[in-house]
Design a protein around this nucleic acid. Structure first.
Lengths: 118, 118
DNA sequence: CCGGAATTTCAATGATCGTTGAACTTATGT
DNA sequence: ACATAAGTTCAACGATCATTGAAATTCCGG
């Protein structure tokens, strides 16, 4: 039963968050994640349109290490979600305006359909 | 009468803005700038507590090229300001929540006094 | 015209970044 | 037990980054 490291949200500096957001693929992952109605149900594989498996894995790690996402291991799959409560407490209002900003960017990579869930 | 290049705000991608924000010194510059009551009056030199002149020049360029700041040349001095209207139109709400986020970060480099102005 | 001030530019350094493809790990289904 | 699927890890690459210090630029005041 492998477990994954998630940093304490209070150890995250503002600049770390922005660094994690400074990539179109990661912003694409983030908006796709935000649009999933059921929390904690987005399989990594669902993002395969955005990049190769190994590159996705790299970007997932960046988001996770910046305290932005959570990764739950279940069998051979991993399920991603946004650490919404933590982010809202530590950086109130930031996540929403980042999502709004990202959604507005016409050049962000986007998933063709809704995320396959569960 | 030297003039300085400022990108069209519509040519700026979300990821570019976040990249420019991904550095503590630049965030420090930004909050200091935001706290100046009179717009367009902050001389570059006023930030000398934050870094060496040459490093500041580098960071100023990053902010300017990301569409975040404006630089007005007057004699041997340059005066910086935030492109607030442009940013608010292109990325509504983002600047304010970025400033709020940055101000909340206890580890950001800060100016000891208010900016010398005019 | 000369000296100094404000700022940028340049070259160099080491660190980190995004990307690729191949190898590895771990769990699942038969 | 074996093949397969889902992810991660690793080594390599060129690109960009932050930082330094020295040199160049541009203007201003005497």
């Amino acid at each position: 039963m492998k477990t994954v490291f998630h940093p304490d949200i209070d150890d995250i500096a503002a600049a770390d968050v922005f660094a994690a957001l400074a990539d179109p693929i990661r912003l694409g992952i983030l908006v796709a994640l935000a649009d999933v109605p059921e929390v904690d149900k987005a399989r990594c594989n669902s993002f395969s349109e955005l990049a190769s498996a190994s590159l996705l894995s790299y970007h997932f790690a960046k988001l996770r290490e910046a305290g932005i996402t959570r990764s739950r291991v279940e069998g051979t799959s991993r399920y991603l979600s946004i650490r919404r409560e933590d982010l809202d407490r530590r950086f109130p209002g930031l996540l929403d305006s980042v999502l709004e900003t990202a959604r507005r960017d016409p050049n962000l990579p986007r998933l063709s359909g809704p995320l396959t869930v569960s």
